[in-house]
Amino acid sequence: MEMDDKTYKKYAEKRAKKSNLAADCAKAFFVGGLICCIGQAAGDIYKALGIGEENVKALIPVTLVFIAALLTGLNVFDNIAKFAGAGTLVPITGFANAVVSPALDTKAEGFILGVGAKIFTIAGPVILYGTLASVIYGVVYYIAGRIF
């Protein structure tokens, strides 16, 4: 084959069938927006029940995480995600699915070396880099507060 690697890679990428961006974005927008509204509604319900604001803030993600975990267990989440793409990935539901699905999947390897060790294989980076970024931010914030 008389084509160098770089040219071939470009050729293969160029001829590759592309995703339908407009349709994918519309689905992501709709499902993502809907999940956020469910979060908003959950917050309003908890407030109406007389729960304090700080606890409502904590209960919204807990509620969505619960729903996503249950749907993952019922083998439904992956089908919704196939349709919604980033619409289920970006909300906290995606984080929940990223924790729950490896836990469920590695049960065969046992509860310590399977579930225990693999539960963060996908979501781990989010916690690592999120925490790291927040600590760096905290140090900068603290120093800035001292100087100014």
């Binding site: 961006l21 992501a28 709709f30 927006g33 999940i35 956020c36 980033a86 990935l89 970006v90």
Partner: peptide, 26 residues
């Protein structure tokens, strides 16, 4: 709805148009 949906759309564009994996996008 609009803001949450829009944040998802940005990620969808990254998924479709780049080789970024979902974990990297998160």
């Amino acid at each position: 709805f609009a803001v949450g949906g829009a944040l998802c759309v940005i990620a969808q564009i990254l998924i479709d148009k780049t080789k970024l994996t979902p974990a990297r996008i998160l």
